[in-house]
Design a binder for these strands. Structure first.
Lengths: 252, 252
DNA sequence: ACAAAAGTGTTTGGCTTACACCCATGG
DNA sequence: CCATGGGTGTAAGCCAAACACTTTTGT
């Protein structure tokens, strides 16, 4: 079983690195304190070694009959009950000491879910939502992974049409602004923001207005662009990192 | 060996997917026809099945003692003799039918090398440079991978400080412009381009001038920014996809 | 009537673009 | 002294930031 050129290495460390798929899922939920929307993500408690009892990103091994993205989606459904419409590859993490006792390579995806979808999470003692900016120490290198996903989310928010995936089918322009403000953590000028959105592609105005506010009823809009999950290519050619087409220039 | 829930599946397809690291390497070399710089990349001929005899990206399995990036760098050195200063993760490819006879997941890196480095390639009947825009049918899904790497390169060129990695330690601003023109495949205004570069960060003018031209000697500059290879984090937080900081705004 | 947010208009400054022009060298 | 590309100047035009102002609802 041990190959000749490595007879002096223990058999365990000769086994190929194991490959897992994990996902960082973001949703906006009202803050307990201020009530304003903030970023949350669901975590799963480890029920085996290593890191038994600690919180971790949902994930699992790659089944041989699934593509990477299918594996991410299925695993999410199995562990949390979520089925995000936005799902995209984030990065492959393969450091030598990410786990203890074995070599682990994780291909990590990231996802966005709408608030009503998020409510359907099968929460339990082992599955819970946490505020993204107040995480305890997670299993493996998952804190670093979340940080990277947050960086990517903010980056992509600045020049991609991504904010709509946090919202339902119809939304007001002010709701889109609140998404930007929550993710980027700064105030934006309502007047200029609205102008930019109206001139952005894939934003369609409807004939409907949101009723029940204690002021002038805002018009509802619809997003007509594609969700990356069903895109033709696995690698949605939209830069985060890279780099994506500048559909929306800069956010005020 | 075969688990109960998959007794009807052949044993071979039960083996875990194999994991490989490959790299797309870009360099600028003078075109045979026009002499102007164009994009080239080195390929390696397959010496075993599958795809025996076809050209493929340099790559190989992941050794258990190497990080992903180290594996990419070492493999590059082994197969081509190249040691790029710029090396960054591109994407993880894991489609079901990328290879024949087994399930293969490839974590792909991309690299940039300077012309003088490129000359040191150990070329042979099994290692050769090809023009990036005139590739034959490659092994596996490597044509798609090269296309994606090209897209990422162009994308990142537009708002990242990446062009310098195609050049030596000192260079003229016109040489930088030629890099942009070669990669983006369009002409740029020399006057405006030079102004943008001079106001860009990490561009330091030297006291030296390039001699031997048949016109006014251009000043030489130096790039003082970091090369991602030695960056602290594996994932260089520069968007390509992401998303990246806009160090250089837009190219004229 | 008033508060509050939706929605419109207008000014300003910065930055890109286009292009005219001068500079320094080799032949 | 001419050709060639290096390098500078500058006006036009576009776009985003700032902010004043009008509109439409609920209470």
């Amino acid at each position: 079983m041990v190959r000749p050129d490595s007879a002096n290495v223990s058999e365990r460390s000769e086994q190929p690195p194991s490959l897992a798929i994990s996902t960082v899922i973001f949703a906006l939920r009202p803050s307990e304190s201020s009530g304003r929307p903030t970023l949350w993500l669901p975590l799963v408690r480890r029920i085996r070694q290593p890191y038994l009892g600690q919180w971790a990103l949902p994930g699992g091994p790659l089944a041989h009959s699934e593509s990477l993205q299918d594996a991410a989606a299925r695993n999410l459904l199995d562990t949390t009950g979520l089925a995000p419409k936005y799902l995209e590859q984030l990065y492959a993490f393969g450091g030598l000491h990410r786990s203890v006792g074995h070599r682990l390579v994780s291909i990590v995806y990231w996802a966005l879910v709408q608030p009503d979808e998020a409510e359907l999470t099968r929460e339990s003692t082992n599955v819970q939502w946490f505020r993204a900016d107040r995480l305890e120490a997670l299993a493996f290198d998952h804190n670093e992974i979340v940080d990277y996903a947050l960086w990517r989310l903010r980056n992509k928010m600045e020049y991609g049409s991504i904010a709509y995936h946090f919202l339902g089918e119809r939304f007001t322009l002010a709701q889109v602004r609140e998404v930007y403000e929550a993710v980027l953590d700064r105030q934006l000028d309502p007047a200029n923001f609205r102008r930019q959105l109206r001139s952005a592609p894939h934003i369609q105005e409807t004939d409907e207005y949101l009723q029940g506010t204690r002021h002038r009823p805002p018009r509802l809009y619809r997003y007509t662009g594609p969700a990356p999950l069903y895109g033709a290519n696995q690698q949605s050619k939209q830069p985060a990192e890279g780099l994506n087409e500048s559909e929306l220039r800069r956010v005020p």
